[in-house]
């Protein structure tokens, strides 16, 4: 049976949800081993070992691995790939940063953003902003894939009985250093795991208006908040709110698009939502072509009224 190595996304404290979809994809390929690379992250390895279906958990705990710098992490993964057949990472910003570096070092062509496992070496993946789904077979000796989080069920975080093995490695490549991060503190549900998302577009005018119109509705619904690229570019909200081809890919139970036209690049990030609701004053806006429920109205009247009536 093939042995797969899943790179665990974490913040040195907790396993991130995106990992769980990657584990599910990996389990369809073979035996699942995990790599927890970080600093002071023993607790992460302990909880990773409890993920259902997990065998070995390799724990590389080293100050040089704290910030997931690909220059330091990729060579470590390459060492492990000496005795694994497939490398699987979630298609998060970290996963996308590290996996191709691993693939090139292994002289392997990566499969990005995999949607389904069709066979031992065959996968589907989106191209052209999700407008064409390609079924692709790899001819490389080893596989390197990144996994779209919304396409696979999350593995259960309990019930597993993996064993944690500490490993050395992860030397500083001396090429890069971490300067800092501005990670937004957000009390709302994270976009990629939220059940409901309220997203605002360019129509929201400015940051204050976005806050006053979108946030109260989201709070009433316990929803995460997203945005179109136009809204982010205009500075209404930070970049991590962006949904779309080049932002986050989301698939909540309910996606409410407010004042968003529905450009293909935006649709690429949300059209797998279970129910799409659109509020737009232009009845011909393309968003209505994918919306299950549409309301043609001026959002500045409709959204406050809706918030009030919930």
């Amino acid at each position: 049976m093939a042995k797969t190595l899943v790179w665990v996304e974490h913040d040195n404290t907790q396993v991130k949800d995106a990992t769980l979809a990657a584990v599910t994809a990996a389990s369809q390929l073979g035996e699942v081993h995990l790599l927890v690379a970080g600093s002071g992250c023993a607790a992460v390895a302990e909880s990773a070992a409890k993920i259902a279906g997990v065998g070995k958990v390799h724990l590389a705990d080293n100050a040089t691995l704290k910030d997931a710098l690909p220059e330091n992490v990729a060579p470590l993964i390459v060492e492990f790939m000496g005795h694994h057949d497939a490398f699987v990472a979630p298609a998060t910003s970290n996963g996308k940063n590290i996996a191709p570096r691993v693939a090139a070092l292994l002289d392997v062509m990566q499969l990005s953003d995999v949607l389904s496992v069709e066979g031992p070496k065959t996968f589907t993946r989106p191209t052209y902003a999700g407008n064409a789904i390609a079924t692709v077979e790899s001819s490389d000796a080893k596989l390197v894939i990144t996994v779209r989080g919304t396409a696979f069920a999350k593995a259960k975080t309990s019930g597993g009985s993996g064993t944690v093995e500490a490993v050395s490695g992860g030397a500083d490549a001396g090429l890069s250093s971490f300067v800092g991060a501005e990670i937004a503190k957000n009390e709302r549900p994270e976009l990629t795991s939220a059940k409901i998302i309220v997203s605002g577009g360019r129509a929201l005018k400015d940051a204050d208006t976005f806050q006053q119109v979108i946030f109260p509705l989201a709070d009433k619904l316990g929803a995460g908040v997203g945005a179109s690229r136009a809204a982010v570019d205009a500075g209404y909200v930070p970049n991590d709110y962006q949904v779309g081809q080049t932002g986050k890919i989301v698939a909540p139970e309910v996606y409410i698009a407010v004042g968003i036209s529905g450009a293909i690049q935006h649709l690429a990030g949300m059209k797998d939502s279970k129910t799409i609701i659109a509020i737009n004053k232009d009845e011909d806006a393309p968003i209505f072509q994918v919306a299950d429920i549409g309301l043609v109205a001026d959002l500045f009247n409709a959204v406050p009224e809706l918030t009030g009536k919930l």
């Binding site: 191209t127 064409a132 789904i133 390609a134 692709v136 009845e283 919306a291 429920i293 549409g294």
Partner: peptide, 27 residues
């Protein structure tokens, strides 16, 4: 190429749903 494309297909199409008349109907 290392990857062989076996097939390219359209993603499942979403069809337009319904339009509601007002906020009450949306609620």
């Amino acid at each position: 190429p290392r990857l062989k494309t076996l097939k390219v297909s359209e993603p499942p199409v979403r069809s337009a749903g319904i339009k509601v008349a007002d906020v009450d109907a949306l609620v």
